[in-house]
Every structure is written in structure tokens, then in C-alpha cells.
């Protein structure tokens, strides 16, 4: 199975840009380097923009899982502090 364990999760399906990414940043701020977070987001604008923003911040995207219900789980490993 997966070569990672999820340390934290955040749901951003109830907010819109730019609070989507802001919530991710806040959640990641709580993590230690190397920890993994699962981010649940809606299809469309969030799934197009949030992964790119997370990558721009230097974090590592491990996986994007399609939940089949119009939401995705983005699995990110925190890099740097």
C-alpha cells in the first residue's frame, strides 16, 4: 500500500479561494518537517490551484486521489520549516 502515513487532515471543501490555500498553509504550519497531510478539496478551481500553490511553497506532493464524489484528497509531505 502507501509508503506514507497520514499525520493530519484538513477539509477545504467548505471554503473558496483564497481561503482554500490559506487553510492548507495554516494546517501545514502545525506539522513538523516530513509529516504528511491529507487535504480534501473540491473538483474544479481548488484542484487546479491548490496543488500548484503547495508545490510553489516547496512541499512534496505524494498523491492526488479521486474520491469519485467530486472531491479529491491531496497527499502532501511537508518540506522545510
Amino acid at each position: 500500500m502507501a509508503d506514507y502515513t497520514i499525520d493530519a487532515a484538513v477539509d477545504i471543501t467548505d471554503v473558496v479561494c483564497p481561503v482554500t490555500f490559506v487553510k492548507v498553509k495554516v494546517a501545514m504550519d502545525e506539522l513538523k518537517e516530513g509529516e504528511v497531510i491529507s487535504v480534501r478539496m473540491n473538483d474544479g478551481e481548488p484542484v487546479q490551484n491548490v496543488p500548484r500553490s503547495v508545490k510553489d511553497e516547496g512541499h512534496k506532493i505524494l498523491k492526488l486521489l479521486d474520491n469519485g464524489d467530486g472531491t479529491y484528497d491531496l497527499i502532501v509531505r511537508k518540506q522545510g520549516d
Binding site: P18, F21, V22, K23, K25, D56, E57
Partner: peptide, 14 residues
């Protein structure tokens, strides 16, 4: 949540 929205343009900045 309200503060996150108020300061969102700041928080987004690296």
C-alpha cells in the same frame, strides 16, 4: 476563520 479570510492575502505570501 474570519481572521484567515481577513489576512488571507498576507498568509498566502511565502
Amino acid at each position: 476563520n474570519e481572521q484567515l479570510e481577513r489576512y488571507s492575502r498576507h498568509i498566502i505570501l511565502k
